[in-house]
Write a protein that binds this DNA or RNA. Structure first.
Lengths: 416, 416
DNA sequence: TGCACTTTGGCAACACCGTTGCGAAAGTAG
DNA sequence: CTACTTTCGCAACGGTGTTGCCAAAGTGCA
């Protein structure tokens, strides 16, 4: 709601309330939600909700979808988001693979691409690969929406009426606001590359760039991390730890995807990073560099890390993994998680990444044990912070990248 | 702006914009600010600002105060906050001392009390001491505002028309929302004590309770931490480190007190704690327990801490202080600060507390050196995070406690 | 001294927001 | 079929920031 200056006018008021309603419609998913429920959840009057939803229906973003059972009077009409009213592209540039998805407003993946990738091939080459994948996905998923005459190669994206833009997620520190990469460890050719500007010029649609961990965290935040279903894709999504000693804390945390939820997503793959979510939005910090978790020092004068420091979590954790000592790796990771949870007082810790996926139970239980111990030391006024496996599968980061474009629609931009 | 539900109506819109204008008036201080400047800073139209300031003048919260030099036309009229239009009481319950202040809207201390304290004397005794100090301060600073007939002992506070309430800051974890103490280390009699409720019943004015570190951080946030003046009270306020390698990062950080500023206040006294400020507001976390900094583990399997864990910053740091090795203490503290700064990407680190005050240079330079080294490792796209001595003197926590009541007026409640 | 110009800031009309009062629509219960 | 409950839209309303216009209060130049 607050722009750069902070003053709010009537347009901002409307945008805020509209985004709130859209977010609730999205969260409700296929089940839908009635006008009166929307009124209760937003605190607005039913009449205001009717006006807002009427406008949304006029714009094609919402539609009526059946009605509820009566409770003694006129039954409530159920409203539903029209998923096809908007789309976004998400691209995940990993160290050895490119994954691209086209999602609709609901976050459902409409089309998907996957290709081997060599970040060392240079920015121009990779840029062209991204553009090609984006155009193919748009043609596959949105081709029927494009007017016949507009189907000229190279202008496919700009011609798609429902496409909101493209989100790119990649490792390494970068400037999220300006869309400029700082560096990618091991690939010096990327230093200072203005990825957003280059892609926007090439594709003609809005582009947003973010760290992979932030994208993953955003995807989890809007996807309702820790929600009931959990039968998404990952086979080990049911694994959980840390709820035993708690007084209902696990139940509380189940709604982490809702507004106000806060969690940390810890990603352990070839490196270690974190994405922080406070109040439903990603915390990026003053210079959009937040989430530097791997190089937190947890062992003064410990073994040297590639970054030049000593005793970094990443170095300790990966060394333990390399020698097969998963229990120790989980203990180190848990120590970092406990530090983080104590400092920020979050609701939930989510674990992800290839290394975690290779042995989910070991990490979830190991990290959970450390958090349990900490909670017990503190006297247990509140239960321990629950630890779960991030439900998103291998394409979770790409989906999160697409959410970089969708989130502002739902009022999830910048911290809430 | 967002309440529990999130929906915003016209009243909320007005409150938001009014708070924004009040905050700018407060920040401008004695120099004042013109209507057009307010319009530029808020993004509102000049006419909207005129309406808002007109309302504020009608309520006695703002007044015209001279005019600027002309720039070729009608000179701008300068507006100023009327400091006496509102007051708040702030109490700091330290382990061995009670400090209470009465401040006006501007944050200026109008009256002050100080008394030795024994937290072990029991909640009732301390409660009575707080109430007595509050009533004395109110009588001293606000007596002339109270109608003659209303001057009956025990009802002094409720009768003072400009008094917004009382803020209490004290060590140890607590529930800020409900105003209930969890515990105070070393004083088991306080476990679970409903301090807010008890004080509100005793005094008849709104009461807010918070951790001492949060109160200090809030005081620094609204006081413009790192601003130019610095000639407050602390003799070593000029000490600074970490700006040398930076590209103007120090200048940027000078505005940490303004909206959008983010910093961490690290308090090293008998214990070690932190207060986090993002976007001008205190980050308290999901269960208002954030800022647990002292028991971050920075040495796996290190020496045992009183909390039961091993290798906590607090234990390592205080042990180093005890044996006179301030350089090592600063290095440990700096390691924790670097972890924190990397994780959250803050603008500034502020140091305070008795132990720091006893040797400011050693800590500021020692912590700054660790942050410098980290920034240099990362390639230095941005300069290192500056480290400064918190400018607030010994009564800073009490002033911050009073700001717990004033901050909501200026839109600084809960995260900006 | 007088006139032209610039800039500030208030008055009035306006568009738009959520709110309130009221009634039509659409069910259930008897 | 009637009485009742509940949902939801239409119309009028109060209040918000915005726009168009004009008076006030300066400066600069002839």
């Amino acid at each position: 709601m607050r722009g750069a200056a902070g003053g709010a006018n009537l347009l901002a008021l409307r945008s805020h309330n509209t985004a709130l309603v859209l977010d609730l419609l999205r969260t409700a998913g296929g089940a839908g939600i009635s006008r009166l429920e929307l009124a209760e959840r937003t605190g607005l009057t039913p009449q205001a909700v009717s006006k807002i939803t009427g406008r949304l229906r006029g714009e094609g973003l919402a539609a009526e979808a059946g009605r509820r059972a009566s409770t003694g009077g006129k039954p409530r009409t159920v409203l539903r988001l029209v998923p096809g009213a908007g789309h976004a592209l998400g691209v995940h540039l990993d160290r050895d693979e490119l994954r691209a998805v086209l999602v609709d407003l609901d976050g459902t993946v409409v089309a998907e691409r996957r290709a081997p990738l060599d970040l060392g091939a240079g920015a121009e080459t990779v840029l062209e690969m991204v553009a090609r994948a984006a155009e193919e996905l748009a043609a596959e998923g949105l081709g029927h929406l494009v007017a016949e005459g507009a189907r000229v190669p190279g202008a496919a994206l700009a011609a798609a009426p429902t496409l909101l833009g493209l989100g790119v997620a990649l490792p390494g520190p970068l400037d999220h606001v300006r869309g400029v990469l700082h560096r990618i460890t091991g690939f010096p050719g990327w230093d200072g590359y203005p990825l957003r500007e280059a892609l926007e010029r090439r594709l003609g649609v809005p582009v947003v760039v973010d760290k992979d961990t932030n994208a993953a965290a955003l995807g989890l935040a809007v996807g309702g991390a820790g929600a009931e279903e959990g039968s998404e894709e990952g086979s080990g999504a049911g694994v959980e730890a840390g709820g035993e000693g708690g007084s209902g804390a696990g139940v509380e945390a189940a709604g982490a995807g809702a507004r106000g939820g806060s969690f940390a997503y810890l990603h352990l793959g070839t490196g270690l990073g974190a994405g922080l979510v406070f109040g439903g939005g990603v915390h990026r910090g003053a210079r959009t560099g937040a989430g530097e978790f791997g190089h937190q020092v947890v062992q003064l004068d410990g073994p040297p890390c590639t970054c030049g420091a000593r005793g970094c979590i990443e170095a300790l954790c990966l060394a333990a993994v390399a020698r097969g000592d998963l229990a120790e790796a989980a203990r180190v990771l848990g120590t970092g998680a406990a530090n983080l949870a104590g400092l920020l007082d979050i609701d939930l810790v989510l674990l992800g990444g290839r290394t975690v996926a290779a042995a989910p139970e070991a990490f979830v239980h190991g990290v959970g044990a450390v958090l349990d111990a900490r909670a017990r030391r503190e006297g247990g006024h509140d239960g321990p912070v629950p630890v779960r496996l991030a439900p998103a599968g291998t394409r979770g980061v790409a989906e999160g990248a697409a959410q970089l474009l969708l989130a502002p629609l739902f009022g999830r931009g910048e911290g809430g």
